[in-house]
Structure formats: C-alpha cells, structure tokens
C-alpha cells in the first residue's frame, strides 16, 4: 500500500516535455498555469473540498506530462479532471453542475483572469447561458477526455497530498514563538501555490518533501525560530531537495506576475487553444495539432540519437 507516496515524473518525461514540444516553454507554462488556476476556481464554485481540487490539479499535471497540450481545449481538460476526481471521491458532482461552473468561469461575466485594474465585469446571465446542444456537446467532450486522462495516467487516480502531513509535522516541531494557526495558514498557502507551478513540483517530489519545504518557507516568512539541527532529515528530506523546493515554491508568485506581462492574453480570461495558435502565428511559428507534435517529438528524438551514435562512432 503506497498511500503516502505518488508516482513521479521520470527524467525522460520532463526532458521530452521541455525539449520536444512544438510550443515555446513560456507558452506551455502559461497554459499549464492558467488551466490549474481555472481548476481551482471551479473547485471553489463547485464547493469541492480543497483536497479534491488539489488532486484534480495533480491529475491534470500528470496527464499533460504524458499527452500533448494542444489535443483538447484546455478548459475542457480541466473540467474532465475535476469531474473525474469528484466522481471517484466522496463528493461527486453532476456533469450539469460542472458544465454550469465552467460556462460561468469562461464567460465575460466572470472576473477570472481579468486584469485587477479593469473594472469588475457586469453580470450578464446570457453570457453564461448554455443551450441544450452546447451542454450536450460539452458533456460528451468531458466524458471522452475523462477516459483519455485515465488512459494516459494508467488508471491510477490516487494522489497523496502533503497537506495533512505538513500539519502533523508542524505539531511535532512546535514552533514556540509563532501562533500555530498563523504558520499553518502560511504552509497551506505555499502548498496550494505549488500546485500551480509550471515546475510541476508535485510531480517531482514526494509529499513529505513538499510538506517540509512549505514549513521551511512559512517559518522563514514569519521569522519563526527553527530547530538548530537539520530537522528536515527527521522527515526524510535531504538538504539538496529541500533547497530546490524552497526556491521553487518561492518563485511561483513572481513568475506568475511576469508571465501575465509576457503573455497579454492572460489578462483577458482563460487562455484558449485559439489564443495560443494566434500567438504562435504572431511569432511566425508553426503549431501542429497534438498528433503532429507527438510525431515531431519522436522524429526529433530519433534524429538526436542518430547524431549521438554518429558522434560516438567518429570518436572511436
């Protein structure tokens, strides 16, 4: 039984994602980040427990590590992930509820991803009204993607979250000079923000490491005195991994701010495939559909391996 652990991304999976996608890294990251934010917003509107939403975030990340980003509309993939996780957990939500929530979040009435400086959008119910045909189409897409997600992640829907662990560790540590609620809140914030990180921290580290890094960051922020020893080792985390995660968790906020400037579309609501295609055209780049992307990747891998072999042969 591996309830405390998660399957992690292999170095090869991470490498392929960054090196072989037809999309530039910052666009990949923009898609990932906005879809994860959308998922969290939907989780709140669907009144799912935060744990369920976090699991949907992780499932979404796993899916996109295996399958090309451009195959389906990003918001549909987010909806399918949340529908699936809700279904296998204790708080199932009907396709109708999921559909309503996404229709709203994607409409002009929602303030999701609008620039904070612009005035709040007027509530216009017709902007998120779904005709029956539109609902049926959405529903069908979500079911197809649900099955596809399961296929891509090998039907393993289990996600171990670091949150309960972090709270337990905190109690063991007993930071004397800080109020427990204050530091717990900060820890949970770090853990939730880490879900959005395009570094995909939940796919590179086990829950115990994430929990320890969030505690470390929270304690630092609040000026809490930490034990003098290498206390993270008690929780089976080594210094190197801790360092990586501490930096990774701290950089999400600044990174998100910068990205909103780099990718202007991110101030106008949820990013769509069409936005990305437009952006690619502006940059004079070619965007294939998912399949081409995949074939390209394989061809590219083969080419590089040939090169390597040739190198080695000439070297001898």
């Amino acid at each position: 039984m591996a309830h405390m652990t998660n399957p992690l991304a292999t170095p090869d999976q991470l490498y392929r994602r960054h090196s072989f996608s037809a999309l530039p890294t910052e666009l990949q990251d923009a898609i990932f980040f906005s879809a994860q934010c959308l998922t969290q917003a939907a989780g709140i509107l669907l009144q799912l427990p935060q744990s369920a939403t976090a699991q949907a975030n992780v499932i979404l990340a796993r899916y996109w590590l295996v399958e090309p980003l451009m195959t389906y509309e990003f918001s549909d993939v987010s909806a399918a992930a949340i529908y699936l996780i809700a279904k296998v957990g204790p708080s199932p939500r009907s396709p109708r509820d999921v559909s309503n929530v996404y229709a709203y979040l994607l409409s002009t009435s929602s303030s999701f991803f609008r620039s904070p400086s612009s005035p709040p959008p007027a509530n216009d119910p017709s902007s998120y009204y779904l005709s029956d045909t539109a609902y049926q189409a959405f529903h069908t897409r979500v079911l197809a993607i649900e099955a596809r997600i399961l296929y891509a992640i090998n039907f393993d829907t289990h996600v171990a979250l670091p949150h309960p662990l972090a709270i337990t560790y905190l109690q063991a540590l007993e930071f004397l000079n800080t109020r427990k609620e204050k530091i717990s809140r900060r820890v949970v914030e770090y853990l939730n923000t880490a879900l959005l990180s395009p570094q995909m921290l939940y796919l590179t580290s086990q829950p115990n490491s994430l929990a320890v890094a969030a505690i470390y960051n929270a304690a630092k922020d609040l000026g809490t005195k930490m034990p003098e020893c290498e206390w993270w080792e008690v929780f089976d985390v080594d210094r190197e991994e801790l360092g990586f995660l501490v930096v990774g968790m701290r950089s999400v906020d600044g990174w998100a701010r910068k990205m909103r400037e780099d990718v202007p579309k991110m101030k106008e609501g949820m990013v769509t495939r069409k936005d990305i295609e437009g952006e690619m055209e502006n940059r004079g780049l070619h965007v294939g559909n998912g399949h081409e992307e995949e074939l390209d990747a394989e061809a590219e891998l083969a080419r590089r391996m040939d090169e390597k072999v040739a190198e080695m042969e000439t070297g001898v």
Binding site: T5, N6, P7, A9, R62, N154, F155, N208, E230, E233
Partner: peptide
C-alpha cells in the same frame, strides 16, 4: 551525527496504458 540514510519513498512512475 548526520544520518545519511534517509528513507526514499518510491511511488513508481506513470504513463499510458
């Protein structure tokens, strides 16, 4: 005083069926 053997949690990998 530094125990170097930390417990490694193995969760396996994931990928398509």
């Amino acid at each position: 005083g530094r125990s170097s053997e930390l417990l490694r949690f193995e969760g396996g990998a994931f990928g398509r069926c």
